[in-house]
Write a protein that binds this DNA or RNA. Structure first.
Lengths: 338, 338
DNA sequence: AATACGCTTGCATACGTATTCAAATTAATT
DNA sequence: AATTAATTTGAATACGTATGCAAGCGTATT
């Protein structure tokens, strides 16, 4: 019989008590180094690894991080997921996936977490209502928002400096001589979107300008296409000379629509600027000017935040903002020259 | 005190034994329907959900599926991941992520699985050696290969009909008058790649032709770029008039390289055909002709395969092949016309 | 009416580990 | 050498659930 060995089997083989085996695998516990080595050796020989399930019953720690995503379409998210998972994996944690849909409530998903004794939750591409925060706070589990934030100060979040990002875009577009600047928004309720839009508006105001028009793309390519078509429909007397699109993902769709459906040239007829700096934006076919949201920084800060509040749950929530900067490529034209 | 309630608490509240509570949550167990309803009601009232960890100690089932990925860069994989996870989620299972790297061996990762009492393993974008199969077979855990296969018949795999796909490509390119057909391969060791290449070769042979040249892109965009540059380097007397690229992901890079680095027109100067039919291929900027690998079919067959061998572990492994078909878009030119 | 049977229920136990507490050993101090 | 302090060790218990077993009860069968 080839049953998976337990700590009792190892104990028997090493001639010690089960307690010793447990201690051998618990860093920093009181045990003779020689014995520990012996036990580890015997364990390896038998192919023993501590059973996380049994362990979690005692410690109430599962070494599992719950990830909630709404979608993985926008390349930014799978890349972030991979990086985060790898970092957690290196620390002995693993990621359990939860995908949200419009059927099941936040509460339902949070209930599912409970069953798995998740050590922490990372909320990523989910359109979160206050339900989420309530549900998570009622849990005693640390929650970190990735690329999302909420007005109230009672949960930790990691975002880029979206407000400043919006302002940067405004200044850049104004300084390159654009007069009719429009915004294709993300999910209107999301903090990320709101902050970018507010930054854009404030930035324009600084230069005595105002937004030409806004439409929602809802972080979706098809809706972004519709928004674009609408902004340039034939019944419009004037059309934008610059489009700020709330994500690269939508910006690609906008570019395609402008070029191949509306027959407009980018950047000659319209400038386009995105947000995220996804790898695809660097492809010559797009060459998208955009605001970077450094994935590596975002991820490492998220991981740190999670780890530190697993270690110390009473830590007060903080709002972490990663600086965002302009990536100049070829979809914005300086209209002051020539 | 707001401790999470246990079955004992619910039992107390409902005036029954803990066993009854357990049975109330165990479908098909012997219990009076009225009592069950009462218990469920009380449980809901207290906010009780069975603790999966404790349950798995008895049942040896964790309701967790282990996913192994090597990368998520190729959009095909995050999309497949999302769909699979959602389907498993609907069945009460959840996905635990494992990312492979070149440091840690297959054995190490398999050992990590063991700790979590995973119910099944899905291997996806991992470049698998026979180590993997050995390691997994030594486990008593069902393994299903997604978009991968191995020569030996001792593990279940779900792939598209790669061999026929390769043949279809050959026939199509020949029938559209191409004379110098080259192949930019994926990871040369992978079954997927081998089958496509073999199909391509056999298909060409059927028409009395032979492959013009081959280079490895290793499923990586940068290596695909290098391969392309090499195939069209100035010291070549003749260059290909058609390129079959083993994945859309690489094909995008190949298109960019041909157009913007080599100044060639696609499809006028060179035809390009990919594999996967990733959403991005439909974007007008690429309009990539490709072989579809229907994600939905692949995913649902994978999920079914997993579920059926969780239910019946003795089931003999099977090799599932999903038909693949040609998606004609704009990167292949019929050279017999005009 | 008496036996058999099927359906419900509670008791007790097992799963594999961490941890408290006291016992036992070793090292340090006088 | 004797006492104290420090370090190791093992026995026992708890975590939250599922399940085999026997007991209870009501209904159907003869």
């Amino acid at each position: 019989m080839n049953k998976t060995p337990s700590s009792v089997d190892v104990a028997k083989a090493a001639g010690v008590s089960q307690s010793m085996v447990s201690r051998a695998f618990t860093p920093g516990s009181s045990i003779n180094p020689d014995k520990r080595a012996l036990i580890i050796a015997k364990a390896k020989e038998l192919g023993y690894r501590p059973n996380i399930m049994a362990r979690s019953m005692i410690t109430k720690k599962s070494k599992i991080i719950g990830f909630v995503f709404g979608y993985l379409e926008n390349q930014y998210y799978p890349l972030a997921l991979e990086k985060m998972s790898r970092e957690f994996q290196a620390k002995g944690y693993h990621s359990l996936m939860f995908f949200s849909d419009n059927q099941s409530s936040a509460d339902d998903i949070v209930q599912e977490f409970l069953q798995y004794q998740i050590d922490a939750v990372v909320l990523a591409s989910v359109s979160l209502s206050s339900d989420w925060i309530d549900a998570c706070n009622s849990l005693s589990v640390p929650v970190v928002l990735f690329n999302r934030a909420i007005k109230t100060d009672d949960v930790t979040s990691v975002t880029s400096a979206n407000y400043e990002g919006g302002k940067t875009v405004a200044r850049y577009l104004v300084e390159t001589g654009h007069k009719r600047i429009s915004y294709i928004s993300g999910f209107v309720e999301s903090s990320t979107n709101k902050d970018r839009e507010r930054g854009l508006n404030d930035g324009l105001e600084d230069h005595g300008m105002t937004l030409f028009s806004v439409e929602s793309g809802n972080y979706d390519q098809e809706q972004a296409r519709k928004a674009t078509l609408d902004m340039f429909s034939s019944d419009k007397a004037e059309t934008p000379d610059a489009l700020f699109v709330a994500s690269d993902h939508m910006a690609f769709s906008v570019l395609e629509t402008l070029r191949y459906e509306l027959g407009l040239r980018v950047p000659e007829d319209v400038s386009v600027i995105g947000y995220d700096n996804v790898p695809l934006g660097a492809a010559p076919s797009y060459n998208l000017t955009t605001m970077s949201q450094p994935v590596d920084d975002m991820v490492s800060h998220t991981v740190n935040a999670v780890m530190s509040r697993i270690a110390q749950p009473s830590l007060k929530p903080e709002r972490i903002e990663i600086p965002s900067h302009l990536i100049q490529r070829k979809t914005v034209k300086n209209r002051l020259l020539s």
